[in-house]
Nucleic acid binder design. Structure first.
Length: 263
DNA sequence: AAAATCACCTGTCCGC
DNA sequence: TGCGGACAGGTGATTT
């Protein structure tokens, strides 16, 4: 789930529910998700503080607190947030639980434990230390050209490389390339100026659209690939059978008619 | 420099 | 019904 649009929606969700409430307790149910901090470290940093603001960079959610640190949440492949009152035994895989003094809770849920929870000094510091590229929803055409033009390797790998552009993952990289009519394995070097501009434009278009549609494929219009990402699906434009191949080890869906291979 | 492979995890689905 | 294997919207390390 959690690529840029999903994390953007988590940000809105957290902002609408969990801000300005005193944190009574922090329960770490699975310490494996903690990165560079401990159960007691996280507890000390957050207990009796409040979440004051939420920000997103790439696929990371940063929650500002009334204390010294920012809380960073990364969601791996299966993470999300759930806000609820009292006990909720329905919710499985809660890894960290933020309990507020009013009896409400914010749960960080992550089935596969591929996500991370950490404390950070600042977003800039984190971005620099982890060498993240420009955020995909903020990147300028100049920055994108710098990251993409003349580079070796498959364009899809490049779009998913967080050090080049931060926020796109497997699903939305496929969608951007479908909208741009570019084959996922096309060599970045072989792309024309018009292809690059097109991809750039579609990054913005697809991400904004996905947020608007709450990242729910069922709400996507007919010109999008996402709802047809399945075996035996067909291209919504030309009805050719959607094909799947591996690019950088990830399953990629594309239309062999609309997206011809270059390079 | 970049691609492939593995590893980290859990859960589900598919085929024998 | 049961079991093995493949695979899932991520990413870092290691090998090629």
């Amino acid at each position: 789930m959690p690529e840029l649009p999903d994390v953007e929606l988590f940000k809105k969700y957290l902002s609408a529910t969990a801000l300005h409430k005193k944190i009574a307790e922090v329960e770490v149910l699975e310490p494996k998700v903690l990165k560079d901090t401990s159960v007691s470290g996280l507890r000390k940093a957050l207990k009796n503080k409040v979440f004051s603001n939420a920000d997103r960079y790439g696929k990371n959610l940063f929650v500002k607190t009334s204390g010294r640190y920012l809380l960073r949440l990364h969601f791996g492949m299966t993470g999300y947030l759930q806000y609820f009152k009292d006990q909720d035994d329905e919710v499985r895989h809660i890894r960290v639980l933020f309990c507020f003094t009013d009896g409400y809770n914010l749960a960080y849920i992550c089935q596969r434990l591929l996500g991370e929870v950490s404390l950070e000094e600042s977003i800039e510091d984190f971005v620099e230390r982890n060498r993240l590229g420009p955020d995909a929803s903020e990147i300028s055409l100049e920055e994108f050209k710098k990251a993409a033009v003349g580079k070796r390797g498959a364009i899809k790998s490049l779009l998913m490389d967080q050090s080049k552009i931060a926020g796109l993952g497997n699903i939305y990289a496929d969608e951007v390339l479908f909208q741009s009519r570019v084959h996922p394995k096309s060599n970045a070097k072989s792309l024309e100026e018009s292809n690059i501009r097109n991809i750039y434009r579609n990054i913005n278009k697809v991400l904004a659209y996905a947020v608007k549609k709450r990242a729910n494929p069922e709400l996507f219009g007919k010109s999008y690939l996402l709802p047809y990402r399945e075996k035996e699906g067909e291209c919504p434009r030309c009805h050719t059978a959607i094909r799947q191949i591996k690019v950088s080890g990830r399953t990629s869906y594309f239309c062999p008619e609309c997206q011809k291979l270059k390079g």
